[in-house]
Amino acid sequence: MKNFEIIANLLKEIWPEHHAKLTSEICQLSSDDAFLLDYIAEKIILIKKDKLKQAIKNYKQTCAVIVQEEIHFRRTQSYRLKTEQQADTEIYSNSSFMDMYLDGLLISQLFWSNHFKVFQFFCSSFLTQISKDDTLNRFVEIGPGHGLFLSEIVKKLPSRECLGYDISESSLRHTSQALQSLECAANVQLINKDIYNLPTDQNFDAIILSEVLEHLEAPQEILTKLSHHLTPKGLLFINVPVCSPAPDHIYLFKTPNEVQDMITSCGFRVNETRYFPMTGYSLERAIKSQATISVAAICQLST
């Protein structure tokens, strides 16, 4: 856990209370979990380089912002922002906020168990499946953000074609910088475009859609559109958080079933699903108390 300890020690210096909570969680990890956590930590260190300490300060600030959103959510049972226009004006166009927020989300891959577990599921199941079939050649991630998912594909499957689409220029800049730091930028084409405008002739053998739907006013429109861009043998990896207030979340999924129902109503069948409750919660308790649950699924077109 050499790399993880580097980050954990910085966290202890910057936010000792959070570090103390984390220590009790880490004690319960399996050796496989610990290995993957250290692997993610290594990537984060490579991405942030001499800005690692600032990234952890930004993580602390991101958590403070999310606490404010949580208060709103608990009082109103709704997310604060209602439209993509609001999110664009308040969040995506605010480059200093985005720099802070994207650092926070990158570090959360390590410290929020639902984020970490989704990445583990992505690597162990989705990547394994697409790597076994060499007829699957063209991949895209919508909203690649911190770049960890995209970089993992490029690293495991360097000869296949990879694209990343994002409406946010700031976010794409972070993705690009991460891919460069991880030495896989040359294998990825990043495109600053709204996914609503994806050309109809663009088809993909794998689509990654992680933490995107909750940012949209009408997520079913995008899912339906993507069903027209997935090849018959292609796979969709989808990850959607339920009851997850954040500064740029718009569409509230209240239960894991709502996510599954939307996926199947938009032309997909679900091959595998995993529910990952937030740190410290069992699934049962998370559902009962409306705590955040990440719903991750591997899907294909329904026939």
């Binding site: 959070h18 909570k21 009790s24 958590c63 403070a64 999310i66 606490v67 949580e70 208060i71 608990r74 937030m278 740190t279 410290g280 108390s289 705590a291 955040t292």
Partner: peptide, 11 residues
């Protein structure tokens, strides 16, 4: 209390 983190504090 181990479970009493910043988000659980709000709840």
């Amino acid at each position: 209390i181990a479970l009493w983190d910043s988000l659980n504090h709000i709840r």
